[in-house]
Amino acid sequence: MNWIDNFVRPKIRSILGQRPDIAENLWVKDPESGEMVFYRDLEANQWVVPNSGYHMKIKPADRLKTFLDDGAYELVPVASMPVDPLKFRDQKRYPDRLKENRAKTGFDDSVIVATGKLFTRDVTVAIQDFDFMGGSLGMAAGQGIITGLETAANRKTPFVLFVASGGARMQEGVLSLMQMPRTTVAVLRLREAGLPFFVVLTNPTTGGVTASYAMLGDVHLAEPGAMIGFAGARVIEQTIREKLPKGFQRSEYLYEHGMVDMVVHRHNLRSTIGSLAAILTKVEASGALTSTAPTTARSSLRDAAAAAEGDDAGDLITAPAGAHAE
């Protein structure tokens, strides 16, 4: 096959004067429906498949550009951490894996911290990049979360965290598990400062991340269809020897059972978090807070809005007809 690809086909093309192949990534397949979507259409729609509404993974830079005012932000440097403290090696050396992922993503580790404005209000944002070793939590990622929380506390801004992770990083062993209590302490410091902490759970959010800072926010939002849990569904089924309910560990299922406050379409995250930040900080935001896609929210959040800013504030957070209410 290599001989055909490397010699025969180029030879035929040179004889016939055939144009080079069109880039293979011009079309992207929807994992849910199998629909083929043009790359630029998908990019323009914030990586949400137009027909099915399936939320695909989105790069941190694209997330920040669509979330913050005018797409403007400044990256916050994160202190460097020891590399390969356990001298771990599986099929590859751990430093080699880090080098590959840094070249692939352009970032030093799986957590990126930035500052910017959301409806003219200063905010601090951290994004966990699943493309970097599955968004795994290691010492550098833990330090990134802590840096984001401390930056928010020092600048007196709300903190928004977009989570996507497969759990703790096995190459760092117990050192990765230590990031769970470290980040928890940082969350408590932000809470003592009286600043809101918004967690956006994206697909997937699992393992030790779910068991720590990802479930310690003041408000938990989730993108539609996101898988959220600690252990995998197959492991749970084998342990309890029972078939799990349909949609188990998906954001809609968790919303129905009270683990998630809101299921929010990606197009609405900016306006929804902007509204919540105005309510929780009791500072009115500038600019129009508009929604373009349905949002599922608990009535208690609307009640909190009304209590904080008057009866009209409840209109900032809306639930569709038939949405679950407590």
Rank of each mutant, 00 (worst) to 15 (best):
Ala61Lys: 15
Met215Phe: 08
Thr281Val: 04
Ser165Cys: 01
Ile58Arg: 12
Asp311Ser: 12
Ile228Met: 08
Gly232Met: 13
Ala186Asn: 04
Leu301Pro: 00
Lys156Pro: 00
Asp5Ser: 14
Ala319Lys: 13
Arg93Val: 00
Leu301Thr: 00
Met36Lys: 09
Arg169Leu: 15
Glu192Lys: 15
Met1Val: 04
Val111Cys: 12
Val185Ser: 10
Met262Tyr: 04
Pro60Glu: 00
Ile112Met: 03
Val260Ala: 06
Lys59Met: 02
Ala114Gly: 01
Thr318Phe: 14
Glu100Ile: 05
Gln18Asn: 14
Gly144Ala: 06
Pro77Tyr: 10
Arg155Gly: 03
Ala153Ser: 09
His220Cys: 05
Lys11Asn: 10
Gly229Cys: 06
Glu43Ile: 10
Pro82Gly: 10
Ala305Lys: 05
Thr205Arg: 15
Tyr255Lys: 15
Val111Arg: 08
Pro20Gly: 05
Thr105Cys: 08
Ile58Glu: 12
Met227Tyr: 14
Pro196His: 07
His265Thr: 02
Ser52Phe: 00
Ala214Thr: 02
Val76Gly: 01
Pro20Ile: 01
Asp5Glu: 14
Ala297Arg: 06
Val111Ile: 09
Glu223Lys: 13
Gly116Pro: 05
Thr66Ile: 08
Glu35Gln: 11
Ala325Thr: 06
His324Ala: 13
Asp108Met: 13
Ala168Lys: 10
Val113Leu: 01
Ile228Tyr: 04
Tyr213Ile: 13
